[in-house]
């Protein structure tokens, strides 16, 4: 039982790591980035390519993945998202174009990795890091799990507090509400958007590296699988709420875990997405999302 709770919490932390950056970008600068999954995958893939040449340890692998993720995300923002946002006639048309742009963008790294790996899984086994399992009071925990728990929950809570309490966090929240008035307040949207994408990309890279260590290998398509779940998590928790991401991650992870523990499996997708529907029926804005309050 304790083992199961620990494992489910680790899974939740993984979801937090992945969904955090995506939620931040969506909730603040208004980009629902469907390329987040491929940034995640491709950062890990670049780290994998490097590790194939030079046997590196975990910190170096993580650093490579984070830098790769940040660079890819910034390039996407600069070359695609920003021009789309600039050209968009109205915010709604812009949103749709951003989603389509993201889907289009995501295909590029995925097909590149698919071709290069022939769609076989890849991992960091050529590196020097070894997974160690420890048994404490009958509960098995690995060094990778410990890192994921600390980093996932730490960054989740840290980011949420930063968004809630810092000046830049406030500016980001304002951007999520009304970009135009935010500009009147002196908030430099393009600069902040670039910084947010950079952070989100680095987080995607971090998640990519840690997940590859945890699952031992991933495939070119792993990012897409997580993307759908992250989408559900963000909606569940409430768009724009970072604490919502943490809550949503725990709900999804524990729901999946419970279903897999007590049924023969086939229901896992139905239950987790059924849960999503249920919550949206009761609270359309998500659990921690704020209802739109607007007067005209």
């Amino acid at each position: 039982m304790v083992q199961d709770l620990l494992n489910a919490t680790t899974l939740a932390s993984i979801y937090v790591l992945f969904a955090l950056g995506m939620s931040l970008v969506w909730g603040t600068i208004g980009i629902l980035n469907f390329a987040h999954g491929s940034i995640f995958m491709f950062s890990a893939f670049i780290a994998y390519l490097v590790v194939q040449q030079i046997p590196l340890g975990m910190p170096a692998v993580i650093a490579i993945a984070m830098v790769s993720g940040a660079l890819i995300a910034v390039a996407m923002q600069y070359l695609v998202f920003q021009p789309i946002m600039k050209k968009a006639k109205n915010p709604h048309a812009g949103e749709l174009q951003l989603v389509i742009g993201g889907i289009g963008l995501s295909a590029i790294p995925i097909s590149f990795a698919q071709r290069s790996t022939l769609s076989n899984p890849f991992g960091f086994s050529a590196g020097t890091f070894e997974t160690q399992a420890y048994t404490i009071g009958g509960v098995i925990i690995t060094n990778v799990m410990i890192i994921i728990l600390i980093v996932g929950l730490g960054l989740g809570v840290g980011t949420a507090l930063w968004i809630r309490n810092s000046k830049k966090g406030l500016a980001l929240r304002a951007l999520g509400v009304d970009p135009e008035v935010s500009a009147m307040m002196g908030i430099d949207r393009p600069k902040l958007a670039l910084a947010t994408m950079l952070y989100s990309g680095a987080l995607a890279g971090l998640a990519g590296a840690l997940l590859t260590y945890y699952f031992n290998s991933i495939t070119s398509e792993s990012g897409d699988t997580l993307l759908l779940k992250a989408f559900a998590i963000i909606i569940l928790g409430g768009v724009g709420s970072i604490f919502g991401v943490i809550l949503g991650s725990f709900i999804l992870a524990f729901a999946e875990f419970a279903v897999l523990l007590y049924t023969n499996g086939s229901w896992v997708t139905a239950v987790s997405f059924g849960l999503l529907f249920l919550i949206l029926l009761i609270r359309p804005q998500g659990i921690l999302g704020k209802k739109e309050v607007r007067r005209t």
Binding site: D4, T225, L260, N264, G265
Partner: peptide
């Protein structure tokens, strides 16, 4: 003893393994 069918979206197998 049991036959557990999992969708391709499953990435973590700790739960079915625990079972």
């Amino acid at each position: 003893l049991s036959s557990t069918g999992l969708p391709n979206s499953t990435q973590d197998f700790k739960a079915p393994i625990s079972k």
